[in-house]
Design a protein around this nucleic acid. Structure first.
Length: 558
RNA sequence: GGCCCCAUCGUCUAGAGGCCUAGGACGCCGGCCUCUCAAGCCGGAAACAGGGGUUCGAAUCCCCUUGGGGCUACCA
């Protein structure tokens, strides 16, 4: 009886009775894709069919980062879910900046966050305008400005709305002013902890006579939470989650610096911006009843909640620095392709199901298949191994030109290619790209694979005769001299032109193929592992190859 | 401490009471291919946390236990 439960909130105050909002259907078959002529199949759900009217409303979801640092990749995963949902439903994805924490405020992270979202392909339909961004001190604000009809989209520009909402609640007796000092609050909490009591505000100022705390003196405004009854969160993936109001704190709405707390600001903004669904991290669910109470006090209807489980590190513990990259910027710098990261993130905590056994999906395919109701209930662990594999798949799918364009900045970063890249160098770079394409999992790995193309090699006897080679120094030198003569006679210095004479040489010398090719590899690349030999020699060029082979032979003859 | 959430191979997951001898993917192991390393192909090991119910029948529904996680700020 969801209706009854929702109405269970009681108090002396005028708490609006809230009509029930949708729960997750027993086996959620989508509120997504409301086919206009939907015939209830065996898997469809009565509840949703009945609510089909509601599914036709325009979905509006948001990502509301706090500019106190870069979002954690687990949050980014949740943003991906929001974005996919908005695109799937033909709705809007809104970006809002929640800068109400003035002590941790770092304005420079605003453009960093926006760059990250854009890089991942998460475009927003409404967001901070040019003027708002300029006021926040964002450089090149015109690059990031989007604007929209329900702004401002930066909370510090909306302070008056929060203040009015809070004051209105005070006037109605649903909230109250509190001037308890930080010291008193600390003492209360310490005592509660010592007595093993629930730690929460003791409501000292709650029943003071009106006017006892002057609006002129420093104070906060707290919500007068009902002392009895229950508040129910209807959640798309958790179902009905019931909280006793007695366990809820008299939440601060307005801080003494005049800024709202998250709880007030998010309610006011989500309501004014007509947000319909809130998909966010699991860690918010315990405080959701506080916000539902704020919605009720203000006489508003809460949106539909969807609390998605958190993303842990590979070891199942909280994901942190020690596990590897945790922000979009870091993943980008480590050479992950945005398409790969996007694909991977979409599959952390969600899967298309329905017997679908693929793992690689284009952005469009993900939009088509995505379904909020199918998000897993259990927290997921972030697997860098699987991401690496998937990135390799995407790298292999690139055209040679695309791969080269991705690689050039990496070579430049390593100091192997000048900045800007000379036009005459590009053909060679495009010939290198296919040699490493199926070997790369992350872009920067190309440096170790290909540095020898750009720098001289310094052969020594130890680096030339390696591993299980059954050649002594004299034999190795002879092989190199023979190879030099063979290579010198090749006019068609392509992989196809190089291979037959070299294989013939192997037969002629009577050594093992791996030994002959191995010593040539060591001599020309300075590495025991390298890209395929013939392609490598071809790109290196005849002159360079002959010089390196000659040099190596001389080293061995000394 | 209190409140809340969660539980299928090591990891991501499929599974919606009989299609399950529990499927796929990453990783791991073995083989093939082979100039090294990859890629590719073939094969293998690997899971329903435990205990009670309900039912003709439970990975699936209910309860308990255990184990993880979250929240408990004038942070978001």
């Amino acid at each position: 009886m969801p209706g009854q439960r929702s109405a269970a909130t009681t108090s002396s105050c005028a708490w609006a009775i809230l009509s029930p909002i949708p729960t997750r259907p027993p086996h959620g078959r989508s509120l997504t894709a409301p086919s206009p002529c939907a015939i209830p199949g065996p898997r469809s759900n009565r509840r949703w069919n009945r609510r089909s009217k509601e599914t036709e409303m325009t979905v509006r979801v948001r990502f509301a980062p706090s500019p106190t640092g870069e979002p954690h990749i687990g949050n980014v995963r949740t943003v991906v879910f929001n974005w996919l949902f908005a695109r799937k439903m033909g709705g809007q994805f809104i970006l809002r900046i929640e800068d109400t924490d003035r002590t941790r405020y770092q304005p420079q992270t605003i453009p960093v966050i926006m760059d990250g979202l854009r890089w991942l392909g998460l475009d927003w339909d409404e967001g901070p305008s040019l003027e708002e961004l300029r006021q926040s001190g964002v450089e090149n604000a015109e690059q990031y400005a989007v604007g929209g009809p329900r702004g401002p989209y930066i909370q510090s520009a909306r302070l008056e709305m929060y203040r009015q909402a809070a004051e209105a609640l005070v006037d109605q007796g649903l909230a109250y002013r509190c001037n308890c000092s930080a010291e008193r609050l600390d003492a209360v909490r310490a005592a509660q902890r010592a007595n093993k009591q629930a730690v929460m505000y003791d409501r000292h100022c709650r029943d003071l006579p009106p006017g006892a705390v002057s609006p002129a003196e420093p104070h906060v405004i707290r919500l007068k939470v009902p002392l009895t009854g229950q508040t129910v969160v209807q959640d798309i993936i958790k179902g009905e989650v019931v909280f006793d109001n007695a366990g809820l704190d008299d939440q601060i709405l307005l801080k003494s610096d005049g800024f709202p707390t998250y709880h007030l600001a998010v309610v006011v903004d989500d309501h004014n911006m007509a947000i319909t669904h809130i998909a966010r991290g699991d860690d918010w669910i315990s405080s959701t009843p506080k916000r539902i109470l704020i919605y009720r006090a203000l006489g508003w209807e809460p949106p539909i909640y969807c609390h998605v489980p958190l993303v842990n590190g590979p070891d199942g513990k909280k994901l942190g620095k020690r596990h590897g990259a945790t922000s979009i910027t870091e993943f980008r710098r480590q050479g992950y392709l945005p398409e790969a990261l996007f694909n991977f993130l979409a599959l952390v905590g969600w899967a298309p199901g329905e017997g679908e056994e693929r793992e690689i999906f284009s952005r469009e395919e993900l939009v088509e298949r995505f379904d909020l109701f199918r998000i897993n209930r259990a927290p997921a662990a972030f697997s860098y191994d699987k991401l690496d594999w998937m990135n390799g798949v995407y790298i292999r799918a690139l055209s040679v030109e695309e791969l080269a364009e991705h690689l050039i900045p990496v070579w430049q970063e390593a100091g192997l290619v000048p900045h800007p890249c000379p036009q005459e160098l590009r053909p060679m770079l495009q010939r290198i790209a296919p040699l490493v394409q199926e070997r790369l999992k992350r872009l920067p790995e190309v440096v170790d694979w290909t540095a020898f193309f750009f720098t001289d090699v310094e052969p020594t006897a130890d680096t030339l005769i390696t591993g299980k080679m059954k050649l002594d120094q004299e034999q190795a030198a002879a092989v190199l001299q023979a190879a030099r003569r063979t290579l010198a006679q090749i006019d068609d210095f392509t992989p196809e032109g190089i291979e037959p004479p070299l294989r013939a040489l192997v037969d002629e010398l009577g050594y093992k193929t791996r030994d002959v090719f191995g010593i040539i590899r060591n001599a020309t690349t300075g590495q025991v592992v390298s890209p395929p030999l013939f392609g490598t020699l071809s790109v290196l060029g005849k002159d360079q190859v002959l010089a390196r082979v000659e040099r190596a032979a001389q080293v061995l003859q000394q």
